[in-house]
Design a protein around this nucleic acid. Sequence first.
DNA 1: TTTAGCACTCGAGGAGTAAGAGTGCTAAAC
DNA 2: GTTTAGCACTCTTACTCCTCGAGTGCTAAA
Lengths: 353, 353
Amino acid sequence: MELSDRKRKILRTIVESYIETAEPVGSKTIADLAGLKLSSATIRNEMADLTAMGYLEQPHTSAGRIPSPAGYRLYVNELMDDHKLTLEETRSLNEALRLKMQELDQVIGEASRVVSQLTNYPAFISSAASTRATVRRYEVLHVDRGSYLAVVLTNLNQAQNKLLSYPADFSAEQMQLLCSILNGKFTGRNVDQFSPELLRSVRDEAGDTLELLVLTVSFAVEVLRHQENQNIRVAGATHLLQQPEYRNVDKAQKLLTYLSDDSKLAALTAPSAADGMQIIIGPENVADELKDTSVVVASYDIGDNMRGLIGVVGPTRMDYAKVAARLSYFADGMSRLFGGDALPPPREDPEKK
Amino acid sequence: MELSDRKRKILRTIVESYIETAEPVGSKTIADLAGLKLSSATIRNEMADLTAMGYLEQPHTSAGRIPSPAGYRLYVNELMDDHKLTLEETRSLNEALRLKMQELDQVIGEASRVVSQLTNYPAFISSAASTRATVRRYEVLHVDRGSYLAVVLTNLNQAQNKLLSYPADFSAEQMQLLCSILNGKFTGRNVDQFSPELLRSVRDEAGDTLELLVLTVSFAVEVLRHQENQNIRVAGATHLLQQPEYRNVDKAQKLLTYLSDDSKLAALTAPSAADGMQIIIGPENVADELKDTSVVVASYDIGDNMRGLIGVVGPTRMDYAKVAARLSYFADGMSRLFGGDALPPPREDPEKK
DNA sequence: TTTAGCACTCGAGGAGTAAGAGTGCTAAAC
DNA sequence: GTTTAGCACTCTTACTCCTCGAGTGCTAAA
């Protein structure tokens, strides 16, 4: 059964009023709020219908109505306006994007903080390799007596380094040899392809440097593992406590604990690899802890072979329109940033002191 | 005025009972609990004295007593036993220390998580250079057309790297020159000594590679800055909410917000550079947000030129004895770890299932 | 100096009640 | 056929009143 325009309008008004006030909405309020020139009695009838159809719920007989998850869903899919960002908002978003974005890890931490601030909800961000990580280049430097620095550059254009100690010093030629073996044999392979046989195969070639080589390779394995793993950050968790639905400490704690458990969050984040925006409303969540929590997620690209998700967690009574708009703008910005493009207002004027 | 032994014993019993139960303690309870063979009336007299002396407080007339900050202080300084770690506890602490401790950043994040779990309170950890950071060694590698990898190793033995793009390719000789200039002129200096004159002084030497050199140097500056900055992590913030004193959401939020603000935490952490353990009880804190929160901090060493603090935050009603014991053990372990020593029980026996 | 006894205080918790918001239904009005 | 006014009904919230019990301080006896 199709919803009449009037019902849609009423539903929309209810959702928006409830989003704003967190109070159940009564027929009188709607009569005043919605532009419809109808009496509260008529609205009541319509609301009764909407309740019967499953779009509204009644906390108890003498309270107003609140949207059901289905109601939110309808609102998100069909009813809500695209929230237009004000000039003010784009400005502050651009500001945030222009951060001294450096190391991927750092960017990610910073971004989650920014998004959380932007939306007033806890935000999470993740990045993950979309292909298997392989090493593109090795370098081993002799730093000091018995101390070496191994540098590993992956195909995802992330470089990592580590100080290795090995109680022997090698000549420049030996170091050269070491590097060329590493670069020759141990590049372009993913973690699973670092077999013991592979190591055995270079045993003779490497000579004295073998053990150092082994150290380097096992560092590389670490790096690859790390790189393939999802990297997750959460920020602004305390914003939750501002929301009336989390005044109850037990509820809040359940969710906060969930959010601080990276592995659980990784699970949340893994399946929704979908492109663009995604809005998951309360009970639509698989995780039990999120059954009355909504999640808004957007994806962004990090260079060619990595991508990430950035999202916001809040009560089902979330300002979907606003959050979605800001999040998608920010995610686009991140993609552009990693893609090396300029930001929309392209004035990259040198900062003056 | 000196406290009689009996008063001390009573105070101690009150503190410990209150720590355990979070309920005001009445005279009857003490009469039962303390080994003293006294009636509740006698205890009452003593408690009245202790209250007059400022060691106890009465939430209201008909409730029992709770320790005042001064009471806690006395307890911490003179009354409490050194909590002996059980075998079980040392085992799990060692377990925790034996983590795949790698990158400093990672260790630090992990450690705070562990400590939080160990104590059931939020934990923070910080690390900071105790001397000014300088670059010890540069390396610039040609990775790809127009793409270079700069590696900077500091005197704190931390290496960082970054991919630089510069639209020109240089010969091996040029790269060699570049590195030797960098290693010759730009090492051993702290951030403030990277002056424009310094750069000018190598202008001619560097020739075409000058711009790449500049990029590298400014990366080095970043690294040094970063290294001198305090690095702070917090974990287990949600443990707070388990404590009855933070069932009040507003109180909890105030503290949680404080904890998630790195800069504030840095301020907390900066002055207490003292060695060993430090216990700060409620109102002794300078920060307003911490006036009814206690902090237990221990310091640890990271190699020669860095040190860090690791601490726990909780209600004044904290199990100081236990927390202090675990924390100091853990901090010692961290120092040993970074010092390269083995852990105390050196039996690395393979775990059996 | 310790203890028993007792009157007193004060908060926690339960019962009862009044107010207010919102509903659903009915019957009249448009 | 819709819409609206009116009204009885329901249910929550907030408030008041009251009782109960824990714990105290004081006094007087042991």
